[in-house]
Amino acid sequence: MMLTMTGVHAHYGHIHALRGIDVEVQAGEIVTLIGANGAGKSTLMMSLFGNPRASAGQIVFDGEDITGLATHEIALRGISLVPEGRRVFPRMTVFENLQMGAGFAAAENFEADLARVFAMFPILDERKMQRAGTLSGGEQQMLAIGRALMSRPKLLLLDEPSLGLAPIYIRRIFQIVRELNRDHGMTILLVEQNANQALKVAHRGYVLQHGGVTLAGSGEELLASPEVRAAYLEGGHG
């Protein structure tokens, strides 16, 4: 098992955001988390990095208990996050953002990884020396994904990657998620408000509600489940 969360609780200020989460991700899987706004999806991802720190429960990554590690230590274990809202460094160039992503990875891989990211997102090559803050939202999302890939993560977390993007970019993002998994064997945990698309690419999924997992199953099972259809697919989210 690549990632195991057992009975994880977490608080954001006074809000009890996660209430006993059990989630597992196997190597080579795409797993998606769906749920309404405020269900705890983003908190779950951030809690993997100890921000907020789990107040109870255990998080094991790649055979190691990472529950109490510092955020940067967890990142160095091989988890990369493409955060909600992209969070590229606006006053750094595209190239520097990618260097930041590669930061602590082996230097001899840098050129090869850069070439791989540029092949995936040619627009980043064109805008290499441009400040990231001047890119469009879609381009920033490409950069955020490219940056996350530069460290050769074992587990890639994507938090709402399609949020606020034009349809052409949304299609491209889901295509990339599929490619990364199929061609590069990348293990991916995906949070999406676009439940329909997410469940179609995912092997398995979890439904989150009020900080707890209410339903789990394969992508097809969840797509067919009447509760999921009623709450997340036919309610205008699809």
């Binding site: 955020t71 940067h72 990142a75 969070r87 606006p90 930041m100």
Partner: peptide, 14 residues
């Protein structure tokens, strides 16, 4: 500079 621009993100990158 990354810490100046976004400390949380910097930590997430190690």
């Amino acid at each position: 500079r990354s810490c100046e621009q976004d400390r949380t993100m910097a930590a997430l990158l190690g």
